[in-house]
């Protein structure tokens, strides 16, 4: 149950609340570059989601098995020529950037070959986007976030497992697709508009993107609200008798809030 709540929060956070493009600014280049037509935008979004999930799987596996201190594979290999205590502490996280970029580049290559061989029609719709994804910062950003949630946490039990990482990457890709799809829809309408000459192209796209980001800021705080709602409904079912706060306490709280408001004003 707890796990499900966690997964839901990660999914909502990655797809909508902290949208990759509109909140973290990763993947802005394709967002500006290939959002001219809706079909192209959807193709790019699907390709990114696909590669991002695969890259997240690979990078989670490599990080857990090889890179972090005390990882099974590196300490096993290290134990051949190092004392056991030292082998347990081999820390290869410094290599993470090089490893990730290699993982992304090679997974893009493999996905391209695989899709071309077995799904020719899908390959044609992806077109030139697949190789371009190698330099899409959204993928590397997903890998880095997963790493910081494995290696950066203080309590080892808080580290993300494979399920959380995959959900994060997949819904991050979904969020990217949503953003680029909305953008492409708006841009198709913009073709018919009378835009000032200097603002044509990238400039108007960025301004529209700014307004979109403003709209997406409305989701700020949804995460905590969702968490409260999910955990509260769980407590309710467990306790059967949810304690309702006393009306006098509510009145006091309202009074306090009003006082605070006046003080600010």
């Amino acid at each position: 149950m707890n796990y499900l709540i966690d997964i839901t929060l990660i999914a909502f956070g990655a797809a909508i609340i902290n949208n990759f493009v509109l909140y973290y600014f990763v993947g802005t280049c394709p967002f500006v570059g290939v959002s001219r037509k809706v079909e192209m935008a959807v193709g790019m979004g699907l390709a990114v989601t696909f590669v991002m999930t695969i890259a997240a799987f690979l990078s989670w596996t490599i990080t857990t098995l090889v890179l972090i201190p005390g990882a099974p594979l590196s300490s096993f290999i290290g134990s051949f020529f190092l004392p056991a205590a030292t082998a347990q502490q081999i820390d290869l996280t410094i290599l993470s950037y090089i490893v990730y970029i290699f993982v992304i580049a090679s997974s893009v290559q493999f996905v391209e070959m695989y899709v071309r061989k077995f799904f020719p029609s899908l390959y044609r719709s992806f077109g030139v986007f697949l190789p371009l994804i190698t330099t899409n910062c959204a993928i590397l950003f997903a890998c880095l976030t997963i790493m910081s949630n494995i290696a950066g946490v203080e309590n080892p039990s808080d580290a993300w497992d494979l399920g959380r990482s995959l959900v994060f990457a997949f819904f991050g890709g979904v969020g990217f697709t949503i953003a680029i799809f909305i953008m492409a829809g708006i841009r198709e309408e913009l073709e018919l508009c009378d835009i000032p000459k200097p603002l044509e192209g990238a400039a108007i796209t960025l301004i529209v993107g700014g307004i979109l980001a403003l709209a997406f800021m409305g989701f700020t705080g949804v995460g905590t609200g969702l968490k409260d709602a999910l955990t509260f409904s769980r407590q309710e079912t467990v306790m059967n008798h949810p304690s309702t706060p006393d009306s006098s306490i509510i009145a006091a709280n309202v009074e306090k809030a009003v006082m605070r408001f006046h003080k600010k004003g």
């Binding site: 993107g209 700014g210 307004i211 980001a213």
Partner: peptide
């Protein structure tokens, strides 16, 4: 974030 997009645009 929105300020970044609008300023750059």
């Amino acid at each position: 974030p929105p300020g970044a997009f609008i300023t750059l645009g």
